[in-house]
């Protein structure tokens, strides 16, 4: 069996990472990239539903959202924004390293991206911990005392659902980057084959893009 496979590969002289149903590396790259963009569109619409819900509730209850957002730590939010922007930069530098066959730099940038993602989740952990202690929780679970403006639980419903879903995406991205890291160490990627690095990069930038909107909408209401 393996002998037969080897023979077939030898006959066609396949590039090692070309799937048999594509005619060439460029076609494979373009097709998978389009697939990734279509997936990103579904992600935009997934978060879109939450953004629309947020828009409606904030338009209807501006005072509640205004009062509730003061419970968020603006410094931590800004710090996380910077961390995520830097991680996007290190990710795109990883793509560049793969495009130019710089294996060591690729590994370095992937590790840096993972570190940034870990920092983001660490800061998020402390923020969530603070909210749990204060009882600033969604809907029925909201037990914060001494509010002067009613309805603040609505803000925290959106806060936890949106940043929570975003957090899951960060975790998913970290898994994908770990997979890239293993393949990069194995030496899979070079100027002739860097598709997976590019595609995971696109996903990671989308996670960054969503945070770019979440940050002003959650932390900077005024």
């Amino acid at each position: 069996m393996s002998q037969a496979t080897t023979t077939v590969q030898a006959e066609h002289e396949h590039p090692p990472f070309l799937q048999h149903h594509f005619t060439g590396m460029q076609q494979q790259f373009d097709a998978t990239k389009l697939g990734m963009w279509l997936f990103l569109v579904t992600e935009v619409l997934l978060f879109g539903g939450l953004f629309v819900g947020y828009g409606i509730m904030r338009a209807k209850h501006p005072e509640a959202f205004m009062a509730a957002h003061h419970h968020l730590n603006r410094t931590m939010g800004a710090l996380n924004t910077i961390v995520l922007l830097v991680s996007s930069f290190t990710m795109v530098m990883g793509v560049w390293a793969a495009q130019t066959s710089r294996k060591r730099l690729l590994i370095l940038f992937l590790v840096l991206t993972l570190l940034c993602a870990g920092t983001f989740l660490g800061v998020k952990f402390f923020e969530y911990q603070h909210k749990f202690e204060e009882g600033l929780l969604p809907g029925n679970f909201y037990t914060h005392q001494g509010d002067t403006v009613p309805g603040q639980f609505m803000f925290f419903s959106f806060y936890f659902m949106m940043t929570g879903l975003h957090g899951f995406h960060v975790v998913g991205g970290m898994c994908a980057i770990t997979w890239l890291l293993i393949r990069a160490i194995r030496g899979d990627f070079s100027a002739s084959y860097y598709g997976p690095v590019d595609l995971v990069g696109l996903y990671w930038h989308l996670v960054d893009l969503i945070w770019i909107y979440l940050f002003p909408l959650m932390y900077l209401i005024s």
Partner: peptide
Amino acid sequence: VALFFMHLRHDKFDAIVFLGGVFFLAVFL
């Protein structure tokens, strides 16, 4: 981020796909 990090400025077709998604989100909102 989209134009430089996601390379959309060199990638007209995928840019149209992505903007299509954003357009429908705008309609929704």
